[in-house]
């Protein structure tokens, strides 16, 4: 970590080594493992086979926040959909806590980009939805729901319907809903892409605080390099299509120090951000040339 705390590697040559280093640092077994995941899907209009992902290998350890960035169309959303169990895959394996993924399940919570909370449920009923599905008794459910309402700062909005909330509040509600089900891994698909810039900054700081408080294992997909560098312990850079794991950038900043007032002066953050940005831009230019 002498080099500004970042760790840079060309994926095809030494990615595996980096993952091993990660494992050595963290002796626990990984929560999420992806091995040799390759994916093709038929194009919606032409029907041609699109090569979306190529030999993806990654491991997520408990309490770790890993972000995925890459040029658009690099398959990062495809990866998330496969991990969420919403997209069947054939080549390679993906498993959570040792269980191979075969479809959606409550061990993986997803925070979607769009406003995915149900408009016909109040904030409290939305947040408690996962527990309701699992038939958790009402008293316990209400207690847990209140805990997460307070955690994401929606106190006082329990009985509001989603259309009465701002965009940022809807996403807080979604984060709370996912957390309340207590998944092993939380998958976030560009969750702050649709909110305005001011709100986004606040939500990023909030998520950092929540990650600290709940110690959740999070895979965070984003197209914003700044966001990735601000939030992640490790940032995975994907290549242009077909998506390969091109580079892993480590960002070794304690969570307590991560807020937007400090970060802009933080040398580790700046170098990590610039490194990720350079790497992504390289891929974007390849994608454009094609």
């Amino acid at each position: 970590m002498d080099d500004g705390g970042r760790e840079v590697a060309r994926a095809r040559h030494c990615c595996n080594e980096i993952i091993i280093t990660g494992a050595a640092m963290n002796s626990m077994t990984p929560k999420l493992v992806v091995e040799g995941l390759t994916h093709y899907y038929p194009d919606e209009y032409t029907g041609e086979s699109v090569h979306a992902l190529e030999d993806i290998n990654l491991e997520l350890y408990e309490g770790e926040l890993v972000s995925v960035v890459g040029p658009s169309g690099c398959g990062k959303s495809t990866l998330l959909n496969i991990l969420a169990g919403l997209l069947p895959y054939k080549i390679g394996t993906a498993s959570v806590d040792g269980n191979v993924i075969h479809g959606p399940g409550p061990d993986r919570g997803v925070v979607f980009q769009e406003h995915a909370i149900l408009p016909w449920r109040t904030v409290a009923k939305n947040i408690g939805h996962g527990l309701e599905i699992r038939r958790v008794p009402q008293a316990e459910r209400e207690k847990r729901v209140q805990e997460f309402i307070d955690l994401v700062g929606l106190t006082g909005f329990e009985d509001k319907f989603p259309h009465e909330l701002s965009g940022g509040m809807k996403q807080r509600c979604q984060v709370a809903r996912t957390l309340c089900s207590d998944p092993v891994v939380m998958l976030m698909d560009e969750p702050f892409a649709a909110v305005d810039a001011q709100t986004r900054i606040t939500l990023q700081e909030e998520l950092n605080r929540i990650a600290m408080a709940t110690h959740k294992t999070i895979l965070f997909i984003t197209h914003s390099v700044e966001e990735a560098a601000f939030l992640a312990d490790r940032c995975l850079v994907f290549s242009a299509r077909p998506g390969r794991l091109k580079e892993i950038v480590k960002i070794d900043i304690p969570r307590e120090q991560r807020n937007w007032t400090n970060m802009n002066d933080n040398a580790i953050f700046i170098s990590a951000r610039d490194r990720i940005l350079a790497s992504v831009r390289e891929e974007v230019s390849i994608a454009v040339e094609e």
């Binding site: 969420a84 169990g85 919403l86 959606p104 399940g105 409550p106 993986r108 919570g109 997803v110 979607f112 769009e114 995915a116 909370i117 149900l118 016909w120 939805h129 996962g130 599905i133 699992r134 809903r177 089900s181």
Partner: peptide, 29 residues
């Protein structure tokens, strides 16, 4: 009904029946 509502209930461990009751019926209201 937006697909994401169905997906969100499925990822919370909901069954087909949960999706019908909690997504399609109110969504088609």
């Amino acid at each position: 009904v937006a697909k994401v509502y169905e997906e969100s209930v499925l990822t919370m461990g909901g069954s087909r029946w949960d999706v019908i009751k909690q997504v399609y019926l109110p969504g088609a209201m």
